[in-house]
Simulated assay, not measured.
Amino acid sequence: MTTPAATTGPLIELTWTDHVSGRKGYLVVDRLVRGVSSGGLRMRPGCTLDEVAGLARGMTMKEALHYDPRSRYIPLGGAKGGIDCDPRDPAAYGVLVRYLKAMRPYIESVWTTGEDLGLSQDLVDEAAAEAGLVSSIQAVYPLLDDEAAARERLAAAFAVDVDGIGLDALVGGCGVAESVLAALDRAGVPHAGARVALQGLGTMGGATARFLARAGLKVVAVADLGGTVAHPDGLDVEALLAARDAHGTVDRSALRAGDRDLPGDAWLSADADVLVPAAVSYAIDAVNQRRITARWIVEAANMPVLPDAEALLAERGVTVLPDVVVNSGTNAWWWWTLFGDIGADADEAFAHTRRALRTLVDRTLARAERDGTTPRAAAHALVADRLPVLAERFGWYR
């Protein structure tokens, strides 16, 4: 059913029930710009409408933060989809296909979507084709100057392989890593030897770990579904990446003699300068935040730090770089490529992503210092400045 949105709430809130399994799915369109919104589709057990609504609002902010009137890419509105199902369940693919069939009118007209937690882009594409869709992003096609050329350019970019990993699986982590480096640079902390612990070694976490290790940082702990792998002198990131499965779980037989296999929450208390939660939402709460000794938390996942935890962390001098800034690179890369700001080239994609994220992190931290607020509050203030500009140029849809 569709629930009417309040005047200050999302434009569309929709709850779907799978007639086969009884599982629930959700779609929230927070805002439209030029009639279109953008936001991925996640699948995880326990996914809720409130969670999807928060993510959709976050997408509105990510899009607005990347607005540059000089770019071909014009930000879209924010949206998000979610399915309450374990992606490892043998029935999950059928649920996904039926969800996309039910959402087909929205995907064809107002909602562009793609991979998110629990789903790969290849799987979304396969299910979308089975559901009768041209593409999971077909709603944006009418906004393109040359649809055929744009689609060819994006397809070519998705075919780019870097060291055995697709470019699309790397750009988000490149942006997260650059956010970490920007924060270190601003504080005058050398990259070499700086210590980082991550939760999650999937698409985002794995790419982040790779870029940070190559920048000279020591990745001292990585948490996955099997626990936390740690080494005080730094893990062999490339070996861990080579030994992970499709869900980012590392084969423990690949660990070195000095690597330690610790409980799953041990990454929180790792002796690190930076923590990167890159797996699930709501990972850091008011209780477990007490274990954190890191100076920075960089949100590669969506909504990993609960608000009450962030307030307590701020009191202790721990800086949280918010998800709406840090993990916005993947979404922006799609649109930079599709609209023609960059081509199907890895070096160009990484350079553009690094420039954009470094600028955004610097701007956010400078605003926080100026206003005496947290980086999240500063990012929200930047969004508040930009949304009226977008609304004046393209219209305001609530």
Rank of each mutant, 00 (worst) to 15 (best):
R316F: 14
D285G: 14
Y106V: 07
V29Y: 00
A378E: 13
L312H: 14
T228C: 04
Q121C: 04
A272Y: 01
H247R: 14
G317F: 01
A266W: 07
G340V: 07
L360T: 06
L225M: 08
N327Y: 14
L198Q: 10
A230T: 07
H352L: 03
P304Y: 06
H380M: 13
A246P: 07
T60Q: 12
S71A: 15
M43T: 05
Y67L: 05
V28S: 08
A294Y: 04
T373L: 05
V361E: 01
G25C: 05
G118W: 04
A381Q: 15
V196A: 03
E152Q: 06
T60N: 05
V97P: 06
A56W: 00
A278W: 11
S38N: 07
F211R: 07
G40F: 02
Q121A: 11
S179F: 02
L11F: 11
D233N: 11
A366V: 14
R72N: 12
L49P: 06
A242Q: 01
H352V: 01
L235P: 02
V280R: 15
T3S: 01
L338P: 09
R44S: 02
D185G: 07
I165C: 10
L32Q: 04
D371I: 02
V52E: 09
L360Y: 05
A91W: 04
L312F: 04
F211H: 09
T293M: 00
K80C: 10
E108H: 15
D224S: 03
D271T: 05
T3I: 13
R393Q: 15
I292T: 10
E178G: 00
A177L: 03
L181Y: 06
I165A: 05
V180G: 04
R195H: 14
E238A: 13
A128N: 10
D362K: 10
A91Q: 09
T113H: 06
A246G: 11
P87F: 08
R376M: 01
A192T: 10
S21A: 07
E108F: 01
G227E: 14
H231E: 09
A286E: 13
V250W: 04
L11S: 09
R88K: 06
V134E: 03
S281M: 14
S120E: 10
S71R: 13
L357C: 02
E115R: 15
Y282C: 02
V97T: 11
V389D: 11
A257T: 14
D84K: 05
G118T: 02
L313H: 03
A246N: 11
R370W: 10
L313S: 03
A6C: 07
E238T: 07
L167R: 15
V287M: 05
P10E: 08
P304T: 06
D345V: 01
H66D: 11
L268Y: 08
D251G: 10
S179M: 01
Q289I: 09
M61C: 12
L184E: 03
S37H: 11
V20D: 00
P4A: 12
A215K: 11
A314S: 15
A79Q: 13
L235T: 01
P388H: 10
Y141F: 14
S136E: 14
L275M: 13
N327Q: 13
E152I: 06
V36R: 15
A270I: 00
R186Q: 15
A366I: 12
L117F: 13
V361Q: 04
R153E: 05
L225Q: 09
A209K: 12
R34E: 14
